[in-house]
Amino acid sequence: MDKKDKSRDKGYNRRDFINNGVRLALGVSVVGTAAFTLKRSATGKDYVWQIDPLKCTQCGRCATDCVRAESAVKCVHAYDLCGYCDLCGGYFKPGAKLETGAENQLCPTAAIQRRFIEEPFFEYIIDEELCIGCAKCVKGCAAFGNSSLHLQIRHDLCLNCNQCSIASVCPSDAISRVPVSDPYIIRGSFTSEEEG
């Protein structure tokens, strides 16, 4: 080995040394960040997006702002709260006749089915295939009824995006992350907490 080669080896050693040092520093910072994050907030819980029906103002953006063409938000019927009214504010247009013709229906896709049970009660069932999450019925029900129709994010459709694109445009901050163990916020006795 001649002199030149030696000096070259030395040079490489120095470079290796620096490289090792920086690598150690970078490694420590990555692991440190991870550890800090873990200690600070990671709970081992997973979260999904959900709408709080008490905050929802039925603005209609859920139908248009989901990343999916078919919004993952659909109307869910909390039957527990339903008054089974003949005149349903969620089903009929204001001032309409109580007939099931399209001219009287509020739902633009006719996704609500009305079924007679017994005098004077009617059941309202949502056809989820047709529902587009426009919240018209929810608004109607909130204004004139018991608020038994809720908008909810359907987890079979939701892609659980890192940032829900509806949440970022929701005017009332009604969409938030909820624990995956309790993925729906439906009022009535389905949930443990009764509204106050």
Partner: peptide
């Protein structure tokens, strides 16, 4: 009375 549809997340 039926229950509301609540499909489980992944």
């Amino acid at each position: 009375q039926p229950s509301p549809t609540t499909p489980e997340p992944r």
